[in-house]
Design a protein around this nucleic acid. Structure first.
Lengths: 240, 240
DNA sequence: AATGAAAATATGTCCGGACAAATTTATCTG
DNA sequence: CAGATAAATTTGTCCGGACATATTTTCATT
């Protein structure tokens, strides 16, 4: 239940960097100094620093020291799933399900789910916002084949990111994700929901989650008003 | 000079997975088994496994074990640069430079390049198509600061993907790529070039390439008519 | 003042051990 | 046989120490 020690130290260091107590471009205290300051072993100090390396806030160099390279966490900015993850975790967003229904798949949905037209599907429609109750910035639709299958029914009870969802539903783990990104006109009903002009364009991210055996778990479609919301991420390439 | 021990073990395990001696979906030997097999400490075994976690070949779960989730290192197909790579290499596309010019940076370009408004810049404007002479599906603009700098001049002579470009110009290697993705209305002149309706929406990918020291090499903006072209990629390799 | 060798510093690698927490497996009980 | 309980298994956390390697600093020499 309680946080590991190295996590506590990492959190504290992150706050210190975010608050400017350790400026970008300067060196963090050395391992031994951290050991003394937090009364931890060197191993624990290194684990804490590893967290910040993973967050891309620091870089370490043997003999030189630990350099602060960013004053905020840049966590998932390595993977394309980060676009989504950035929204779901990094930016600490909330998904509020507005309604759920059983629908017969039309052409478009049938293609997304890879099923026959007319197949019963569960559909969850929600809005994503940074804080609960705040203005939404993204329309999120989640689909699953089978209106009566037990997993689909449970899907209606839980809420949150698809990854959390999959964990909660005890599906095991996600084997593959297919992702389509394109631009599209934002449907007027969604424009209304998001409070943006009717003629807006949007970034459409359609994702399909498969289990390791290749069976589709769920599909999700997210619409982001494009001009308002810009995804930015940096990628460092290792040449080793 | 010599590789660390944990790296040797990680390499061996990776080869074993790639060769199918450890199948995707199965469990890797436990830490203690690895300790015995390679005559290493548990710490070293854990370091080795950490490498494979970083490569996204395995996933670990306390109490359960170490699951093999991929049979090859997942490197660039995890990064959003694959969107571009898919176009440049996977789909075997051609970039045809339509014209080059020296321009004074306006507000937008100055922000993209991180330079003063009014700075001389090289601008290459081109169209991307699957085959030379075929209908283009993407508008590509490449920018570089300095209208007279030798590298900029040479930029006008070569053509192709930015990565190939960088290689040809012998810049060394790209240290970092920053990327913005958003949706936008497609400017009417570009719509004309691409032969799509004037009121089209487009996917706009703006990328900035830096050398390892952090100096900007070039910036590129690609516009794709959104509804026509869909990026599709898989994040995790399915069991094949 | 410039150079180069030595010392100090800081991170990297590696070992040993101990206990905690999560999961799986075996066992007992009704 | 089903369900709860206990044991075994497996990874996670944390400590201590030692030496290696890369970098910076110091200092003696020229």
């Amino acid at each position: 239940m309680s946080k590991p020690r190295y996590q506590t130290v990492a959190d504290q260091l992150r706050r210190d960097i975010e608050k400017g107590r350790h400026q970008v471009g300067t060196l963090l205290p050395t391992e031994l100094q951290l050991c003394a300051a937090y009364e931890i072993s060197r191993h624990t100090a290194r684990e804490a620093l590893r967290v910040l390396i993973h967050d891309r806030m620091i870089e370490r160099k043997q003999g030189s020291g630990t350099l602060v390279i960013a004053n905020s966490r840049q966590r998932f900015n390595h993977s394309i799933s980060s676009v989504q993850d950035l929204l779901q975790y990094g930016a600490n967003t909330r998904l509020t399900i507005k309604h759920t229904e059983i629908v017969a798949a039309d052409d478009e949905l049938a293609e997304l789910l890879g099923c026959e037209v007319g197949t019963d599907c569960i559909h969850l429609h929600g809005l994503r916002s940074t804080q609960k109750g705040e203005a939404p910035f993204c329309v999120s639709d989640i689909y699953r084949i089978g209106g009566k299958d037990p997993l689909s029914r449970r899907l209606m009870e839980v809420s949150g990111a698809v990854y959390a969802l999959v964990e909660e539903l005890e599906i095991g783990h996600i084997g593959m994700v297919e992702q389509d990104i394109n631009a599209a006109p934002l449907p007027s009903e969604n424009a209304l929901e998001l409070g943006v002009p009717k003629s807006s364009v949007c970034l459409r991210i359609a994702r399909r989650y498969f289990d390791p055996s290749g069976k589709l778990i769920v599909a999700a479609v997210n619409l982001h008003p494009g001009s308002d919301f810009v995804y930015s991420m940096s990628l460092k390439q290792s040449t080793s």
